[in-house]
Computed example of a mutant assay.
Amino acid sequence: MFDTAAYLKALDYDGPLDPTADTLRELHRRHLIAIPYDSSLNTARGEALWAGVDIDVDAVFDAVVLGGRGGVCYELNGLFLALLRELGYETGLFAAGIRQVDDSFGPDLEHVLGFVRLDGELWLVDVGFVGPSYLEPLRVVPDEVQPQFGTDFRVVRADTGHHVVQRRGRVGDWRAVYRFHPRPRAFADWLVPSPELDRFARALAGSGIVVRGRAFEGGQRILIGTRLVVVEDGTERLRGLADPEEHARVLAEILRKDAATA
């Protein structure tokens, strides 16, 4: 059963609860540190990736916050938005298409993220994206550079009418994270039949690649199959984990489970 006090305890948060930007930043970062992303849940769902998008908040809270399992975008962001509403924030949903390895974008409804309207400003909140991405919420102010832990972020407008979230580390140029239309969505939007989403779901299910990730103070660790991405102080490192024991150890650390049972 959803419980605000238990949620805040799981996030190791005992600070102010007034709905301010500072509180929002702290809760967002702590959420990414406390609760992992885990796409292995999609294995059982097969091509029906969004069938449970309109989550049972109480059931998902019990499984994720109290039970300690990871979640996917709509579970993690759905829970977090419920928490923010309890604390007095004005929240809503956006849909995003994630940048693919060839720099194209997935379907507009590929990803579920949240937003907050606060003091006349629009903020992106997303604790359900494995990354690399922002650890603290982003203000939707066109072209404004927003530094976070050695990495710069900005939101730019594209010719397609989308807003694009971009990131830039200490080395390299700007790269897209995902794009979105700043149009509020409802969970029901993901339940409307869509050939584009169906094709994407089939391709994702066929890849067999499981992605897990968790943030730490100032950075992120993302395990994509046997490839480990570590982002720390604006520097991104990628290496393969060929040793099964090392893979199990890293996986256990991300999921915070005993390596013998991971």
Rank of each mutant, 00 (worst) to 15 (best):
L109N: 09
G161V: 06
E121C: 02
R214A: 08
G234H: 05
L238C: 04
E136V: 15
R221S: 11
A242K: 11
A176M: 07
E246Q: 13
R45V: 05
V116P: 02
V171A: 11
Y74H: 12
V250A: 00
L27I: 11
V57K: 05
V141G: 00
A203S: 10
A259D: 09
F216Y: 08
S104M: 02
P137M: 07
V230H: 00
G68R: 00
A242V: 13
Q166H: 06
G218C: 04
L66I: 13
F187Y: 14
G67H: 07
G128I: 04
A203F: 05
P36R: 02
E86K: 07
F61R: 01
T226H: 06
F180V: 06
V229Q: 12
E245K: 09
D108R: 07
R179V: 06
G128L: 03
E236Y: 11
V250I: 15
R185K: 09
G218T: 13
G106T: 08
G67W: 08
R202E: 09
G46V: 09
G120I: 10
F187Q: 04
E217H: 14
D62C: 02
R175D: 13
A203K: 04
G225L: 12
G172R: 09
V165F: 03
P147Q: 13
F105T: 00
Y134L: 12
C73W: 05
L76Y: 02
V57A: 04
R212I: 15
R237Y: 06
V53S: 05
W174R: 03
R183A: 14
D198G: 00
I254K: 00
H247Y: 10
E75H: 03
G213S: 10
V60I: 15
A51P: 05
R154P: 09
V130P: 00
